[in-house]
């Protein structure tokens, strides 16, 4: 399935504000965050310097690699946060 990913900060500077990635489904209509991360890193080598340090948010909440992504979810890939 195809997932559109929102990007922020250094990732946005390098890759633009959004990036669409094709990811294999783990079951019909569903992929895992981990598979999406792999597909993203394969499609966007510029992001490899962050690799596993990229944080993933699904529907504005942090998600782990085992969590599901479904059509219609809002997905964002975030560089390590640096507020304060």
């Amino acid at each position: 399935m195809r997932v559109e990913i929102l990007l922020f900060a250094s990732l946005r500077d390098e890759l633009g504000g959004t990036c669409a990635v094709e990811v294999p489904e783990s079951r019909p209509g569903e992929a895992t965050v981990g598979a999406l991360r792999e597909a993203f890193l394969a499609a966007c080598p510029a992001a490899a310097r962050l690799g596993k340090r990229i944080l993933v948010a699904v529907n504005e909440r942090f998600a782990g690699d085992a969590d599901p992504v479904r059509p219609g979810d809002t997905v964002a890939f975030l560089p390590p946060v640096a507020g304060g």
């Binding site: 922020f8 900060a9 250094s10 944080l55 390590p80 946060v81 640096a82 507020g83 304060g84």
Partner: peptide, 27 residues
């Protein structure tokens, strides 16, 4: 409160100096 903000809130900062700018990486 401040430790949680720094660890969890999706905020980033770009440092500007005389020679240009760089995104701050906390690690």
């Amino acid at each position: 409160g401040i430790e949680e903000i720094k660890a969890r809130v999706p905020v980033w900062k770009r440092e500007w100096g005389p020679d240009g700018s760089v995104w701050v990486d906390p690690l």
